[in-house]
């Protein structure tokens, strides 16, 4: 308990904690739809694009958010269109993602500040400034709000785009919304988790929830809960043991995933015995 009190006695840690919770929650909700649509790799690709943009921004001493956000949004639209045409989408995502990483590394080392490289790749709690926090809170709130409002529409466009279109649901609109939200989450989450780990915030909660829950609503709820709990535990462990925050959080996600995996295997076996 005293550790928790200690954490919250620092303003910058409380700020990082709040931002982290909101980002985790938003990422986990979007993740359910992304994973189910087989778009998991898009989150990963976007985070590398984000890193490239961040590197370039720091080279020219531009505001990181102002550069990264539009670049990642554009990349999201581009990648989504690619994967719609399916064939070759996979390879293109890998191209874009490793290409952006290289550009980012070059830009950062040209700038000559190598501590930045570390922070961009693996995240840094200290990187969350006051203005970052405000932007993050507004963007996460927007994400949560649109997710709740369009929950049913997102469900049906994920489950069956052909049927949705035929019954007059504007599926493109919701796919667009989803890619915009993904881009935003990647950009704000990158500051804390780093570009190499941010996609785990999107993918782990959904994958874990899908092992445990059998209905879409429960997958959504468990995914949201798992993300918040894993973030809180990881955050505290990282402070208590002086470990990198991003990696600690992901480690907790791994543990949760393994537990869920074992649970689903056991349940499957029990079921087979019954039959």
């Amino acid at each position: 308990m005293s550790i928790i009190n200690e954490i919250f006695s620092y303003t910058f840690l409380s700020r990082a904690f709040l931002v982290g919770i909101l980002v985790s929650l938003s990422a986990s909700l979007i993740g359910v739809s992304l994973v189910l649509r087989r778009f998991s790799m898009i989150g990963d690709g976007l985070s590398h694009v984000g890193f490239g943009a961040l590197g370039v921004a720091s080279l020219f001493a531009l505001s990181p958010m102002a550069v990264t956000l539009p670049v990642v949004v554009l990349a999201a639209l581009f990648l989504l269109n690619l994967s719609k045409k399916s064939k070759g989408g996979d390879g293109s995502i890998a191209l874009i993602s490793s290409g952006s990483l290289a550009i980012g590394v070059l830009a950062v080392s040209l700038g000559g500040v190598n501590t930045d490289l570390n922070a961009y790749l693996f995240g840094s709690i200290l990187a969350v400034s006051k203005s970052d926090a405000y932007i993050s809170i507004v963007l996460s709130a927007f994400t949560l709000f649109s997710y709740v409002i369009f929950y049913h529409q997102i469900y049906i466009t994920t489950f069956d785009p052909a049927f949705s279109k035929a019954t007059g649901i504007k599926t493109e609109r919701y796919t667009l919304l989803l890619s915009l939200l993904t881009a935003m989450i990647v950009v704000i989450g990158m500051r804390i988790l780093g570009s190499l780990l941010i996609s785990s915030l999107i993918i782990f909660p959904a994958m874990t929830a899908m092992k445990v829950a059998r209905s879409y609503r429960n997958v959504t709820i468990i995914s949201a809960l798992e993300s918040v709990i894993a973030f809180a535990i990881g955050f505290i462990i990282s402070y208590a043991c002086s470990l990198p925050t991003g990696a600690s959080i992901v480690a907790v996600h791994i543990v949760f995933y393994i537990v869920a995996f074992v649970y689903s295997e056991l349940r499957m076996r029990a079921r087979k015995k019954l039959l």
Binding site: D160, F163, S215, Y216
Partner: peptide
């Protein structure tokens, strides 16, 4: 797809 049967059916009237 993780979805209950009811969730699938009711989405038909969205």
């Amino acid at each position: 797809f993780p979805s209950s049967v009811m969730e699938v059916v009711i989405s038909g009237c969205l």
